[in-house]
Every structure is written in C-alpha cells, then in structure tokens.
Design a protein around this nucleic acid. Sequence first.
DNA 1: AGACACACGTGATAC
DNA 2: TGTATCACGTGTGTC
Lengths: 236, 236
Amino acid sequence: MGEEYQNLWETKLFFQNEELDSWTLDEAISGYYDSSSPDGAASSAASKNIVSERNRRKRLNERLFALRAVVPNISKMDRASIIKDAINYIQELQEQERGIQAEILELESGKSTGFDVFEQDLPVLLRSKKKRIDDRCCDFGRSRNISRIEELELSVTSMREKTLVVSLTCRKRTDTMVKLCEVFESLRLKIITANVTTVSERVLKTVFIEADEDKDHLKTRIETAIAALNDPLSPM
Amino acid sequence: MGEEYQNLWETKLFFQNEELDSWTLDEAISGYYDSSSPDGAASSAASKNIVSERNRRKRLNERLFALRAVVPNISKMDRASIIKDAINYIQELQEQERGIQAEILELESGKSTGFDVFEQDLPVLLRSKKKRIDDRCCDFGRSRNISRIEELELSVTSMREKTLVVSLTCRKRTDTMVKLCEVFESLRLKIITANVTTVSERVLKTVFIEADEDKDHLKTRIETAIAALNDPLSPM
DNA sequence: AGACACACGTGATAC
DNA sequence: TGTATCACGTGTGTC
C-alpha cells in the first residue's frame, strides 16, 4: 500500500529527471507548450523560467528524499509525513541529548570520591530534635540564604506516553529535603514513585510522574515553584 | 537579508491563510478564476480540488515551518535550505548519539570515579541498547562472579530501643539490587522502611528494622547471608 | 534586467 | 464514487 505509493512517487521523479537528461530543454519546452509568445525573447525567458523551476523542484525532491533517508522508521512516504517524522525524530534525539547533558553535568558537579552517610539515615527522633535546632538557626538565617534550594540542576525527561521523570540535584542545606517535598506537593502532580537521597553534601531527587503535560512546561513549573520558595517576597 | 526573506515568506503564508479564513471558499475560487466550467458539478469538483490542494500546501508549509523551528542555527529560510539544515542537524545528533553510546559502554564495563547517573535517567532508546549490552555481559559473567555482591561496605547501627539501621553499599552489577532484596527477604526481618539507590556504579541500600537483636549479631547474619549468596557451593 | 523563490490552479493518477 | 498526493506551467514578488 504505502510501498507502492512510494514506488509510484519515485517513478514519477525518475521520469522527470530522465526527461531533463535526455531531451534538449528548449525542445522539450517548445514542443510541449508553444501556444503563446511569437516573440523569441519572451519564449526563451519563459522556457528558462520553466527549466529553472523544474530544477528547483528536482532539488527539493532530492533533499526530501535525503531527509527520508536519514530518518529511521518512516511510516508513510508522504511529503508531509516525511517532514513530520523527521520532526518527531529530531525531538527524540534532542530529548536524549538533554538528558545526557544533564547527567554529565551531575557527573561533573558531584565528583566526590568517598561517600558519606546520609542524613535520612538518622533516626526520626533525632531528626526531629535536629529540626528544632535548625529552626533556631533558621530564625537567624531566614533573612539569609538558609533553607533555600541552591545550585539546582533539574532535568525533566519524558519516558513514554503519560510518564515524565524528574531528576534534580541541589546543595544539601537544612530542610532542603522538606522544602523539595513541599515544592512537589504544591504542584499537585500524580506521583508514581519518588526517591530522595543525599550524598556528598548534595540532595538527589527522582520522581516518576504520570501526566500528559509537556516536559518543558513541567520543568518551568518546577523552576518557578522553586524560585518562589527561594524568594517568597518577589512578585509571583 | 535572510531575515527579510523570512518575513516575506511568512507574510505570504499569512495572507494565504487569511484568505482561507475570511472568504467563503467557493467565492474565492469563482471570483478568482471562473473562465471555465459552465457545468455546475464540474465547477464544484474543481473548486473542491482547489481548496483541497490549498489546504495541502498549507499543511505542508506548516510542517516545514515546524521543522525549521526544531532545527537550530538555520542559515537561510529556503525550503531546500531548511530541509538541508535539518538533514545536517540530524546527522550531527546521530554522531553524538554514537559517541555517547561508546561512553556508556565504557562506563558500564569500567570504573568511573564520578558520580553518575541513575539508570532510569537514561533515555529509552539508549536503555534498550544498554540492556542488550547488559544481557551480553550477563551471558559472559554467569559462570564467573557477576551477580555477586562485591566490595561490600556494611554498617549496622542501633538507633534507639528496637530499631536498627542497616546501611550498605556495594558495586552495581547485574541483578545486584534483586540479590540484595533477596538477602534481606531471607533474613525475615521486620522492615520499617527500605531505600535502594544506585549512584556512581554503586548500589546504596538503607533499611530501618524493628528488632531486639544486637546490631553486631545482625551484621554477621547479613554478612553470612551475602557470603552464601556469593558462593552457593560452600558449606553453609 | 536576469536569477531566484514561492503560491496558485490544473490535470493525472492511485486508493 | 470521491478523496488523497503529486508534477507541471505560470504569474508575482524580491534581490
């Protein structure tokens, strides 16, 4: 079905090119369409235009053909479908690139050889006491930059239909994990599973989300939410 | 120069769409070109064809526009140039992908100090390929020491009455996480909460346990269980 | 002027 | 049958 259609199209292109190669161009034009122009100059110009336009179409088809060649899994051989599939393919590759760049960023930022123990390993009781101490520190630090989300690295990748993966790292400050959880609480997301870990003075959080939302859109939402948390007084 | 050309083209498209939106289509056709067709049916068919063709061109231009949008560093706004740049861009991305695949292969087989990536952060395409590599490694390693618990670091701390915290790390091999879970299953512990994460080719596991058991005793139990898993043939 | 790029309408053709 | 796509020649516009 689609296969025959492809063959048809290429056959058409083939004949077109064959005409151009085998015939003298002026002959082809004059023999085809000489109902007008007793004037020789005008005829020449018209034929020039015709052959030029023909070459232009030929080039465009060749490029379209080449585009189809570099895109795998082309469904239909439509002109529009070719471009559409190319767009989708480019977007896939771009997603890959972004994810991997984010990973490399993480890789470079958190190059700590040894790995220390995690705050989350502290027992709940101790942590509550610790929190009270932190709160006192917070009273001092509210006007400073304690309890902010610092050195954030955020990447949102779409896994498959309806599933997004948010993976972020930031400096480990007091209540950073709590603040992160509050941020994701405020976004009202459909969280499939989430994981928060701290290692080498940084917090790593990974969240699987079920959503139709665009990944870039979600990313900006998270960024704005974190920005609002970092600076609650700013116009939001 | 190229900028004005772009604007020109988009203006043309704009007018084209405006015509389609503001006029009645049949009016547009008949008012434009009514030199033929005294027959009403034929005229209708012709106009249908005309509007259909117009929509087709419109769609194609939209797709071409979208293609231009996803391709960065577009030099000229030519139709042909757009497609050409898209092809070049795709080929660049494909090269990048190959390089990164090689990196991942190294990363997977060798030791990387830094801190890499959650496996789930890898894009889907790469993951499928990666999985195939993993499977191959598995086939080679089954008879050797793959799927063992290697380079284990284990600590058991008693938190307060009746609560122990096990925190361990080991190399990340195939099925390491599964094996770890099996170990803790076999110990019949009363697990409050557990967390497994992989970072920098290592697996980190933290388990909160409710037990009266002595922490050193639990530690030796875990060690022997892991030893038994690593060498099932030994007298256990 | 000439070269180039585009949109348009039209007929042919395949499903 | 009608509804898709396509190539073609042509007119129009810009550089």
